[in-house]
Design a protein around this nucleic acid. Structure first.
Lengths: 190, 190
DNA sequence: CAATTCATTGAATTTATATTCAATATAATA
DNA sequence: TATTATATTGAATATAAATTCAATGAATTG
């Protein structure tokens, strides 16, 4: 690939990263194109050279975001509780370093719980349901005796709600001390 | 009070309730005056008869919201862990019935973690820090041996993040099954 | 180095939404 | 019932933000 194309790709990535950060922090509406442009260090006009519209930029983030979490849920899990331990650890401990992927979790959750802008987006989200597979996995854990009794759906909501609520705080204010992921897993642990 | 004044008060309350619901659901920017007016069943123009501006309406909600949570934190607590049990139970189990107060928790948390619109609002929020008192209380619990070891601030973040993350989901989709509040308290329990 | 293509800007333009306002309906009061 | 005050509307107006565009600068290519 030519240097120019690489540059362009890089620039698009920078914009996506800035967008992700701001969308998490302020939400879609409150995030102004100007904010994103400023964070990347470019003019507003130029941003439209890279993305057709604010909404297309948002949609592209969603497309990227759908794969990560979905892949994670696909993994052939060893032991259910262990899986939740890994997920919790991964998300909470990576919010500072490997920011993009970790922030993506927070982002997708917000998107998922938002009456979405366009039909386009709604369609994309059909593919994205982590609650169903989570409940299944919890059931398995309950059979094995490693996960506590109780409605698997309610447990799934408790686990993801907690992870996301904590992750959101950490994403917004990076200097906060990070809770131990095992504390969260104790929500599920027998 | 005359009937008219009561009516007016009632109407203002209806608007505040609709605003609260929508602000939680969509955030400040994405909530249009039109949305609020529609939810209350009045014209956009009329809403401005009751509230000077969208921002004033938002500020009034914040003023209301500051007292509830702060009062709750003021209580002379019996046993620390018991206090957290009560809070968790109260918030999670009231999101469906006594909606206003429970939603207020979610709302105030969102406001707290948002670079706020006006100076006015920032000033009001100075009064609103539940993390500090929570950490104190956790320390006490640790001394008494009912709360697990670990950084009290990190534990406070874990507790509130979880409560708020779960509450947000329940507020957005009322038909979700409600997790058992004890599961969340297990984040703190020794 | 001339020509071409792409990156970039800042200033229009368009669009969405908040806010104001003059006019009308409805309720309270004398 | 007539008068006054308040509630209500829908149509202007103002404002802020998204999007377009013509012009300029910088890199690439022959």
């Amino acid at each position: 690939m030519s240097t120019r194309e690489q540059q362009k790709e890089q620039r698009r990535m920078d914009i996506l990263a800035a967008g992700l950060d701001l969308f998490i922090r302020k939400g879609y509406s409150a995030t102004k194109i100007k904010d994103i442009a400023e964070q990347v260090g470019m003019s507003v006009g130029l941003l439209f050279h890279y993305f057709e519209s604010k909404e297309k930029l948002y949609e592209e983030l969603i497309s990227i975001g759908i794969d990560g979490p979905r892949d994670m849920m696909k993994l052939e899990h060893t032991e259910p509780l262990e899986f939740f331990q890994n997920v919790a650890k991964y998300i909470l401990y990576n919010l500072k370093e490997e920011t993009f992927t970790a922030k993506m979790f927070v982002f997708m959750w917000q998107v998922y719980f938002t009456e979405s802008v366009s039909e386009e987006i709604k369609r994309k989200l059909k593919d994205f349901d982590i609650y169903q597979p989570t409940a299944e996995l919890i059931k398995k854990g309950q059979e094995k005796g490693t996960i506590r009794e109780g409605d698997p759906n309610a447990l799934a909501i408790a686990f993801w709600g907690s992870i996301q609520g904590i992750a959101l705080q950490l994403a917004l204010i990076p200097e906060l001390p990070c809770p131990d992921s095992e504390w969260i897993v104790d929500i599920l642990r027998k």
